[in-house]
Design a protein around this nucleic acid. Structure first.
Lengths: 236, 236
DNA sequence: GCCGCCAATTGACCCAGATCAAGGCAAATC
DNA sequence: GATTTGCCTTGATCTGGGTCAATTGGCGGC
């Protein structure tokens, strides 16, 4: 295959594979499968045997849990270029997915099987380290998420989320384009869509932001930063 | 050292070291330090350079975050035999602790430095896998925690916590002995001590449990299980 | 025995955000 | 151009659990 070269470059952009040698990468690609999902399709469900992990090439995925009552909590929204579900491969012989995965938009993915990848890890300490780094990054993200879910108000969480988005866009004009439906963002931030809407309205009235559909302009980044660093009841 | 043998056995009980060879373990022990902490002493603080990780030998530690407003969120309560803060070693050259660690009771720990441990990992794929398994276990715990913090009410979280405690005690008499102060448990479960107290009172009035100080008897495990599996508004 | 200290409990009150219920608006379908 | 569908917004109301404060009950020190 000639495409293999192109795929290798694509994989290398994921943290997980950044340290892996060309040969390893190519053998890995040969054992990988391509997966296509339509918007709304389920990739795997919570509790299912975990035999593969994934790299999102295009589209958008959400990882979530559903409570017995049917409420849905979005743990993570996966962007193209990110891997997910790598962790389960090390949970022992009978690993099961701890979350469900569903496509938000039409998506294309690579699927990697347990066995070949495990082989790769045993033969390459660097790959191992890449994996470890990848997992610990995820670990920290979760710790941060727990903190913001318990320590901060809904407004804090939303503003923090907006501020997180700007570095990857043009820094000069602090605009955020919401690629995900607002209801999904609300889920990720553990609030109802109504609440998200109300908070945006509140921020708009304080002219801290402008909202045009899914296009949000941060008019006063300084003030927004201040908002999440000190409590709302401002004195002095 | 003759103690080294005993230490090796002690370490092996931690998941992280379970797969490590004797030689590696012993060289690791030689490079480890012993740490003693009085109740309330801080081991490290959020944001500090992370150069070591730890194995708790005796006592009780809490890992927590503090918000700018001074609220404290307990991320984890570490029991003897558990390692913590391993993840930071892979966050790159300038890893920093994402949480603070404080002794709840007087504690004794082993401290392991970054460098020797990293050496061990490069030379042993098994050790690497142990590490990966350890991290992914922690990852799953955090995902579970996020779920219960967002999907469930305070009562759900407390009951789930109580039910989690029984398998390790005698199964026949479902009693739970709270080894940690109730206020710490409240923190771990993201609620105020007052709320915890009220919920215990409520459960006691429904005669689902008996409370004698830090000794709790689960009088109706079946009903408690039901409580966390279906919503309180019970209909047929 | 008395006092101070701290954890736990209990009561009264309050508020952020959930829930319920209408619209509004734009793209898709007829 | 009318109608349906999906997503978002807005308003009104409700409530779990946080906050503040008072009370109780060990427990160690003097």
């Amino acid at each position: 295959m000639d495409e293999v070269q192109g795929y290798a470059a694509e994989l290398r952009r994921a943290y997980l594979f950044s340290q892996v040698s060309d040969e390893h990468l190519q053998s890995l690609i040969k054992s990988a499968q391509q997966v296509r999902l339509g918007a709304g399709e389920i990739l795997f469900s919570h509790g299912q045997r975990a035999e593969r992990f994934f790299l999102l090439r295009e589209g958008l995925m959400k990882l979530f849990r559903v409570s017995p009552e049917g409420d849905e909590k979005i743990i993570e929204i996966t962007q193209p270029g990110q891997t997910f579900a790598e962790a389960v491969l090390f949970m022992g012989t009978e690993g099961r997915y701890p979350v469900s995965a569903q496509a938000i938009h039409d998506s294309r993915l690579f699927a990697f099987h347990y066995a070949p990848f495990r082989e790769l890890l045993t033969s390459s300490a660097d790959a191992c380290f890449g994996m470890l780094a990848s997992l610990s990054r995820r670990l920290h993200m979760l710790v941060n998420q727990i903190e913001s879910l318990t320590l901060q108000s809904a407004t804090y969480r939303l503003v923090a989320y907006l501020l997180e988005q700007i570095p990857r866009d043009i820094q000069e004009s602090p605009e955020v384009l919401l690629t995900t439906p607002k209801s999904a963002i609300a889920g990720r931030l553990a609030m109802q869509p109504e609440t998200l809407s109300r908070i945006l309205a509140k921020l708009r009235n304080s002219s801290l932001i402008d909202v045009h559909a899914n296009h949000i302009i941060l008019r006063d980044v300084q003030a927004l930063r201040g908002l999440i660093h000190r409590p709302p009841p401002g004195e002095s």
